[in-house]
Design a binder for these strands. Sequence first.
DNA 1: CGCGCTCATGCA
DNA 2: GCATGAGCGCGG
Length: 858
Amino acid sequence: MYAKVIVDVPAKQTNRAFDYFVPEAMRSWVAIGSRVGVPFGPRKVQGFVIDLHTRSDLDPSKVKPISEVMDLYPPLTPDLVQLAGWISRTYLCHEITALQAMIPGALKAKYERHVKAADDSLGGNGESGQFAMLLPEQREMIRYVRDKGSVQLESLLEKFGSDAALIKQLMAEGLLYEVQMIKDRMAAKKVLTVFPADNAELLKEAESQLPARAAKQKEVLRYLADHPAPIKLTELLHELGISAGTVKSLADKGLLTIKEVEVFRDPYAKRSFAKTRPLPLMPEQQQVYGRISRAVAAREHRVFLLHGVTGSGKTEVYLQSIQTCLDQGREAIVLVPEISLTPQMVERFKGRFGDQVAVLHSRLSHGERYDEWRKIMLRQVSVVIGARSAIFAPFTKIGLIIIDEEHESSYKQEESPKYHARDVAVARASQHDAVVVLGSATPSLESMHGTLAVSAAARRAATGGMPGGAPAITEAGAAAAADTALNERVPFELLTMHNRVEGRPLPPVHIIDMREELRTGNRSMFSRALYKAIEERLHKKEQTVLLLNRRGYSTFVMCRTCGYVAQCPHCDISLTFHQSSRAIRCHYCGYAERELTVCPSCGSEHIRHFGTGTQRVEEELGKLFPGIRVIRMDVDTTTEKGSHEKWLTMFRNRQADVLLGTQMVAKGLDFPHVTLVGALAADTVLNLPDFRAAERTFQLLTQVAGRAGRHELPGEVFVQTYAPEHYSIISASRHDYRSFIDKEMTLRKLHQYPPFHRLILITLSHEQIPLLMRTAESMAVRLKELAKESGLSQVEILGPVASPIARIKDRYRFQCMIKYRGEASISGLVKRAVASFEDVERQHKMTISVDVDPQVLM
DNA sequence: CGCGCTCATGCA
DNA sequence: GCATGAGCGCGG
């Protein structure tokens, strides 16, 4: 039997399967999805088995055997392996990169090189022949290695001063040899556990026979007689206030055993979750739930786009739909944006499904995440709630995939593989005949467009198949054929919930024209109306949420005399002032310097920090409303583990009057006493050079407005802006999704942007501008050539132009954009174009990155 | 990617 | 004449 293996070498030349022989002894272990160690050239690397076959037309002198199987059970399911192939072809990354993205970081290979001594390395009497020819130092090395049995190469080099040549020579002589090991970065956590002897009589008897001075040991035996279950060693020690030696000596007497037992690190172990029962559904919820649950019951691959206004009770619909799925013995995956994976959210799922839920998010430690993942592997859970990568949960019977806040841009991964979790979810669901629910109060244009789109199959049928006839049956052809099913797009079905639960109205939204405020002499960051509203809430002891969305574009530093702006010396970006460290920092490379007091350019002392960050708002609030209690939530205050939760709990307990934060306060929070929401600068996002700016602004304002008046107390929203007439702001203020989407769709169509046209962004970067420009230029030419050759008419090549951030970490950046229509993938074209620049990449250390369906055009 | 093989260049 | 170093192509 042979295995096709994708090796852990992310390079163009190795981005294909290699055949290995599966030794007889391994046959019951090796399966599709297994992690294996294989010899690769002169070294040993990790790889994934993607296929097993018995083809015997392989050159037996070339094929090597698999050297080890890494896991008891394959960490990937066959459908995930297939999905990895699809991801690598769709998003143009190495297949290994896609495979690696599917397993927890803890299982990423760590390569260790160890040195061992050959059996006869000391020669006959140790001082003759070969051995006598060696340097004293080398003899010492051999002795050292021999003593230790096996030494890590690096530590040997360190110990004997770094002369690799000496060791190499010893290896060439056959006195030492190298063993390569592949290790996991993380192992299952083990806890020493005490197992009392089975025989209770024996324990009693032993207790009476122990000498009186062994009082502690007697105490342990008595305790174990009362509590015969296994107990953690530490717990036992703590309970009885004794030392490990006592227990150890009992173990030596054979009265108990101490063993290492694998345990799960449970991040939620210390918390109990109140069990919740299904809530009665409102008519609208009932209808939506009915549609979803019927599709789940029918085991049909369907995609629902659930448009539900904020507070319409989407989560309850999710919970009950999941219950339907579990009742059928199938599993469910719930994706939420990292930022809204709040304890509140987790609580609702744990409360309903208890131990059946695994939680995956980035704040878990490597070990915790690994353990949650293992619960999925071992089928101990049937629901996963997590951020983007949870879409790869190794379930085998998926019935339902829910993507909450489906419009969130964080579902797109910005590093390779640059996949979009929404699209991967649809592909994965089609493998399982599962239902996808995309939920949002502000569905993305892409998803809305999906409700209009005709399925690719229907279109192909209409146009008479692929251009150029049937593809030849090559390996690539076979892969493409396997992808067809995954590329099949069912039209999305739109479900709508217009009403908030219990008929609470959406809060009125007031737009405040900040130009008008300025004209009438108010230079503060608070408009008069918002100021009054906050004051009122303080009086009534109600709470306020304030949003200031800076997205990293916080204050820049400028000299008022000469106009000098502090910039990063390595990136084309302004430096940002950080109050806490009194430093100015680059957001892209981390470069920092001390706060400016004099202008480095003209020597003037008129340095001013422009733009308003959350820190300044906090300061200002303190000045305007003495005694006000403010909680500030942004990246600076929530990096610490658990801090996010801590602040929110404080706010919930009304230990603060105002919750001030960046977009993290806009998502999913639900506090009964919040009656006022203020967006301080609604147009920060609007002014970004991105065709999605209006969409993002509309989404953000709608989301944040949804935080007010969710319970008995009515709410009110103030939106401060310099662009009060902009349609995104007006539509958001009227809670009018329909008018926004109509307007935005029209504009996108007119300007040929997504979702009507699709984009592929190719970014080239290099230290030197001339070479970079030349290469980018020929990249565009090559793309145009290939587009023409392939007869694709609806493909447009734009650029090259300098990227919006023209330099990062001393590397200049240029980009080409491909705009094209329809579902037909043009990845083959891009792949070929990029391939023809392989030599430039290598020779000149040029970097070329490809982003299919980019979310950010930086 | 990392290795070793090849070939060019430099000094005995 | 061989030793040292950067570039190339290969890996099952």
